[in-house]
Design a protein around this nucleic acid. Structure first.
Lengths: 148, 148
DNA sequence: TATATATAAATGCACTTGCATATAGAGTCA
DNA sequence: TGACTCTATATGCAAGTGCATTTATATATA
């Protein structure tokens, strides 16, 4: 038997639109802050951070891809750019002839840190500063439900 | 005197990341639903809806732009596409020689309605169905604070 | 092990976006 | 009214993205 899909209420629609507006607005504010500080786009940060977290073993592109929720071809090209800027190395995988392992270079590590200085300020200004701890955790739990 | 900027807490950072993840995920799910239904991207819907709301007076491109939080050149090109699909008409403004007024065509009206059928389902499935009324209004109020 | 199928990653092409600038008309003010 | 400045919109070009396909290797299966 099929679940009966209910139409979303007006409140739901309005809140949905608000979510899109707010997230788009926040995102572009942050990207702008990065640009103003002559830093690369946010996606670079995400990739560098994941690679930093991954530690000395590095990450396979497909692993990074799934962490970043990025399309395969987009990741492939993002990695191209990171490599050509010297922030990341592609090293042939010892165990899988199809692929590579990605490692942060020391340049990459520096860039991640430099971006974080800016990004952190940006999160504080546009986001964290506008909500109390209590509100943050409420928001987090609501987002958690949406993620499921 | 300068406000002392506090670093965001770990919770704040985690919640921020969650917000980005969730909104990106929702957005791509909805875009995918539209594609699956052979409908154009969400941005088209937003534009068509605003023009529908604007009623018979239509909207100037710059007005539509500010409603949609879109860059000027992006709006200009979005309108190009809508016009070339016959969904929108550009009519020279009677009072301002620099610009146009945008009007929905009847095709445009139909397209808006067709997209809404899909979009509505999509909002219900990915968003509205996961939160109670109470939670929706809580979320709305939190987003409201972020928007300020 | 030969064959079919699945996975990892890259890439050509078309389309979209961002950036800087161009164009043209409006508004201001001496 | 002429010279400036501002606003509305478009556009050439470079960079990014989506899509479909390719290449190469791995895994499963008969």
């Amino acid at each position: 038997m099929k679940a009966k899909p209910m139409n979303p209420s007006d409140t739901a629609i309005e809140t949905w639109a608000q979510l899109l507006r707010v997230s788009r607005h926040l995102l572009s504010a942050v990207e702008q802050d990065l640009k103003d500080a002559k830093q690369p786009p946010l996606a670079w940060y995400d990739a560098l951070l994941e690679l930093k977290r991954a530690g000395p073993d590095g990450l396979r592109p497909f692993q990074l891809q799934s962490k970043m929720l990025l399309a395969q071809y987009n990741l492939s090209r993002l990695v191209d750019r990171l490599v050509s800027e010297g922030l990341v190395k592609r090293i042939e995988s010892a165990t899988d002839g199809r692929g590579f392992v990605l490692h942060l270079t020391s340049e990459g590590r520096k860039k991640q840190a430099a971006m974080w200085k800016v990004y952190q300020r940006s999160i504080a200004n546009h986001f964290a500063g506008k909500l109390s701890d209590r509100e943050l955790s409420k928001l987090s739990s609501l987002l958690g439900q949406l993620g499921t």
